[in-house]
């Protein structure tokens, strides 16, 4: 009897969760706004270069800008700092644009084995969830480094728990011409807008958004 009740309760929770995820992922009511806070997941090397190009096109309404980088990634920190300095130079009137860099552990070092990846992802999740909860960004923008999966999961969780609906935008890297990256395959289902940059991917994933080459 207890077993049946437990199973029923578990089933109910599961159904509720699935419904809730569906609702969060499909709520597209556009609230008019004048500015919004953005959280950018910068990966290593090329990922960071690409995402900074995208950011370069965004107006100052996307402010403050929070960057999340892997804790060992000095190169990305330097790129971000020089990008922000450049931006401030070009627009000296805008003294108040703020940016912050946050560091979390990498969810997967290159060549790490898969089973240990699961653990490091969970570990990253434990650190990214409080960060996302604290920042409560309006928008999360990412383009594929491993770090972005726990971040997006955390952002989705805020929505599921009814704390805040965070818009998740994923831009697949220009490198991906015919196949999605692993992060892309996961976040295709969990993002609000999934942007690809080559027509072959748009054909394979009709639900994605194709705007041409944007970096």
């Amino acid at each position: 009897m207890v077993c049946v009740l437990l199973a029923a309760a578990a089933g109910a929770v599961a159904v509720f969760l699935i419904l809730r995820i569906w609702v969060v992922l499909h709520s597209r009511d556009v609230t008019p706004r004048e500015s919004l806070s953005i959280l950018v997941v910068a990966g290593s090397g090329g990922h960071t270069t690409e995402i900074l190009r995208l950011l370069g096109s965004l107006s100052n309404a996307y402010s403050p800008r929070h960057y999340v980088i892997a804790d060992t990634d000095e190169m990305s920190a330097n790129k971000i700092n020089s990008f922000e300095l450049d931006r401030a130079d070009r627009d000296p009137g805008n003294m108040y644009t703020k940016y912050y860099i946050h560091r979390i552990p990498r969810s997967r070092e290159v060549q790490q084995s898969w089973p240990s990846t699961v653990f490091t992802t969970l570990h990253s999740m434990r650190l990214s969830l409080p960060l996302i909860h604290q920042l409560k960004p309006d928008l999360v923008l990412c383009n594929g480094p491993g770090t972005c999966v726990p971040i997006c999961l955390s952002a989705l969780l805020l929505g599921i728990l009814g704390i805040k609906k965070v818009i998740i935008v994923y831009v697949e890297s220009i490198c991906r011409v015919e196949t999605l990256s692993l992060s892309g395959k996961i976040l295709f289902h969990l993002s609000d807008y999934f942007i690809v940059q080559w027509p072959a991917l748009k054909e394979k994933y009709p639900k994605s958004v194709y705007l041409g080459r944007i970096v």
């Binding site: 004048e34 919004l36 190009r53 995208l54 096109s57 965004l58 309404a61 944007i214």
Partner: peptide, 18 residues
Amino acid sequence: PGQPEKFSAFLDKVVGLQ
């Protein structure tokens, strides 16, 4: 060159930026 301005136009629209 790529056209990041298409990305910003798209994003402005979907986030409801005035």
